[in-house]
Simulated assay, not measured.
Amino acid sequence: MLLTGLAGCTYSDHPTEPAAAIQSTPAPTASSAAKPALSGETMRDSFGNVDFYTTTAGDTLAAVAKAYKLSEAKVAGFNGLQPGTPLAPGTKLRLIPDGPGPGAMGVATVDANGIPMDYTVEPDDSLAGITYRFNLTEEQLAEANKVPFAYEKGNVFFIQAGRAIPLQKNAVDSRSGAGAEVKNSFGQTVYYTTVDGDSFDSLGYKYRSTTAQILLYNPSLAADQPIPAGTKVRLIPGELKIEGAQGTFTTDANGIPLTYTTAPGDTERQVSFRFGVTDLRAANRPSKGTGGAWYEFTDLPPGELASGQTISLALDKPINNPER
């Protein structure tokens, strides 16, 4: 089976553990310098972002706006009010836009508390528009979708018209994520051994891998079955040949890829993705000078490599071509 370099099919540093589930929590008091000095209740999303605030006596639009680093005009607009409108205690204020706007004109679904859960992308939508409308950072949006980045080199990466994208994470077991990792020389986790509480979601959020990818890399697992504790899960394609990385490779005693022999049609990008390599050129630097990698290309713009070359996949075991 061939796997193309679609959204999420690339490498990244490991994200942090998933945040708590969506819940209503009291707003912090003034004793916490990093949080708003308001006493009303808040409604937070799965990342801890405050989407709604319920007022108490003495609250004003201006004070609420300042606490959440918004303009009074924006908070008023989100709630169909005029700036300066007095607020009765118990007023539930939106801190996110109410409905479509520039760059995010599609339909969203919300839960019973009004927290946006998923969104269907429309033509001409933008990453900036979507993150603004739903009070998310680009990193949070990427994590919710189990992809390393929401963009790549300035280009929108997975935001495509018609695609339904999650806006929140599912709750995961607090015991998850404590298993042993085997990393390559670039610091990327190649294997993870599961513990009680691990699931496709917990692995997906931590390592930015979709359930479909994990199943593809680990044929012994099943989507409708829990992952047993002690399972060694592969987090890179590895033995799975993918489009643009069809060659053979060697490994060390721990199964970490060491060298790779290129095949026709291989590209730097796909070879790097297949083996969790973040800097293929650094592992294949010339023995002299400060130029780029010594290996040869057949088509430079797309990064297509000449076939039959044995190159290093390990930063700590570089192959330095003596002729370069």
Rank of each mutant, 00 (worst) to 15 (best):
Q168N: 04
A171L: 09
A112V: 00
K169R: 02
T120F: 14
A150I: 06
A128S: 04
A142H: 04
L216K: 03
G154P: 09
E143R: 14
A222T: 07
T189W: 00
F200I: 10
Q160V: 13
G197I: 04
R133E: 07
L203A: 06
T194C: 14
A178G: 04
G154H: 12
G179C: 02
Y151K: 06
T109K: 05
K169Y: 06
S126T: 09
L215W: 01
T210V: 12
I159D: 13
A164F: 13
A161S: 05
T210G: 12
S220F: 15
L167Q: 08
T210W: 11
T109V: 02
F149R: 01
T210P: 01
Q160W: 11
P166Y: 05
F200T: 04
D196T: 01
T131C: 08
A128F: 06
T231P: 12
P228Y: 11
S220C: 07
D125G: 12
L216R: 01
M105F: 03
I159K: 08
N135Q: 07
G197T: 01
A112D: 06
E152L: 02
L127N: 11
D124H: 15
S202A: 10
K241Y: 05
N184P: 06
I115W: 11
L167G: 03
M117L: 08
K146S: 01
M105T: 11
V121C: 09
N135C: 15
N113Y: 03
T193Q: 09
D111F: 08
T194G: 12
T189M: 07
P237E: 08
D125W: 11
A222C: 15
L240M: 14
A222G: 10
R234T: 12
Y191S: 05
A108W: 08
G179H: 05
F134R: 03
E122I: 15
V195W: 07
F158V: 13
P237T: 07
S176L: 09
G204T: 14
G187Q: 00
A108Q: 01
Y132F: 01
D111M: 08
E143I: 15
V182P: 10
P228K: 11
L141R: 05
A128W: 06
G129D: 06
V107E: 00
T189K: 07
I242V: 14
L167H: 12
T109D: 03
G244R: 02
M105D: 14
Y217R: 08
N113H: 01
V107L: 04
M117S: 03
E152V: 06
G238V: 00
V110G: 02
E243F: 05
F186R: 02
K169P: 11
